[in-house]
Nucleic acid binder design. Sequence first.
DNA 1: GAAACTCCTTAACAAACGCTAAGAAATCCG
DNA 2: CGGATTTCTTAGCGTTTGTTAAGGAGTTTC
Lengths: 203, 203
Amino acid sequence: MYYLTHMHPLRAYIHRFVPLTDAEWAPLAAGLSVRQLRRKQDFVTQAQPAPELALVISGACRLFYTGADGEERTTYFFFENHLLGSYQSCLTGQPSQFSIQALAPTELVTFPYALLRRLFDEYPVYERFGRLLAEYHLLGTDARLTELLLLSPEQRYQALLRSHKTKILERVPQQYVASYLGVTPVSLSRIRARLLADDAEPM
Amino acid sequence: MYYLTHMHPLRAYIHRFVPLTDAEWAPLAAGLSVRQLRRKQDFVTQAQPAPELALVISGACRLFYTGADGEERTTYFFFENHLLGSYQSCLTGQPSQFSIQALAPTELVTFPYALLRRLFDEYPVYERFGRLLAEYHLLGTDARLTELLLLSPEQRYQALLRSHKTKILERVPQQYVASYLGVTPVSLSRIRARLLADDAEPM
DNA sequence: GAAACTCCTTAACAAACGCTAAGAAATCCG
DNA sequence: CGGATTTCTTAGCGTTTGTTAAGGAGTTTC
């Protein structure tokens, strides 16, 4: 048994939800691959099947939709120790509706979703991990949805400033952050200018 | 074993995800209560604990947040055969961040979340149900989030018109639908007027 | 049947946003 | 280091939204 600090990053990720014995970890470990992405390289490509999940070891990625006009809208970011993939494509086998692309050189550990599905059947601990993982992401997505419905663009930017997601502001080009907040890059730039002005001269 | 049409509504709901034997259904059935709500009566009240889940037997409910200024923002609706409750409050034991209120006379079957948690531990089939339920809702919430980020208010209204959620338009006052779409009631009324005008005179 | 209530529409004005374009600043990469 | 690329800001204009207010249509209630 590894110490926490010596655990495989994916095992440590799972460990935040459920403990795994060596015997339970082994079959997943046997199915892992390491993958390096260059900046702007896709892990998932829109309109193509995406049967694999991945854990970010280092680097950063964005999830984005490409419209009929070729315009890209970024809706999510992934950093170290984030799990990523097209859950919909994994479940249904259909082509992914979005792309996931590296924002900077990125190292991933990947595995086929089919392997995880087999582990759901064979090990109750993986089934529980699957439930807790889905519940955790559901709470996060619900919170994000609520923020979009309840707050103005300016309030959403301020909420992001105050949140613990500072990695987004530090490591992601502002145009993508704008998409994430549901506004255009030009509009986010104006919001920032407005807040700076109000800050310097609050009355 | 009941025929599908004679099944208890909650058992039929679960059956869409996993099959339950009589022995597996019995402990949940033993913990159920029936509850009637009058129009405008709460099932969940904001700032109060909400340790119960419920299945709608008949009627309709809305989920809404009350702001500091007393203003209400509706973000979700529930009709027959929808499961409702404050998942966050159930999981954390904290007070609910929103209210759930009947839009019309409503009949519910309720049960404590603590009972479901016990079933997760004792019956693998419930654990799987829990995973599939969370995954299903995650896909739905993700789709809704994406729609908010990618479409304009007018496009979102048109998407709702074309969707299979016609119950919302048929049975929910328009002011609440506006909230659900992320706009004010006045703005939704204008959007509708615009679409009607364009419809009559497409050029 | 009249009063009370709920709900939808319309109008007018101010504020915010989307779009296009141009220039400046920062970053990347050979 | 230095050219090329990417990114951010600012400006002007048209459109949409939020806000407030008023009126009317439809329901409920007594």
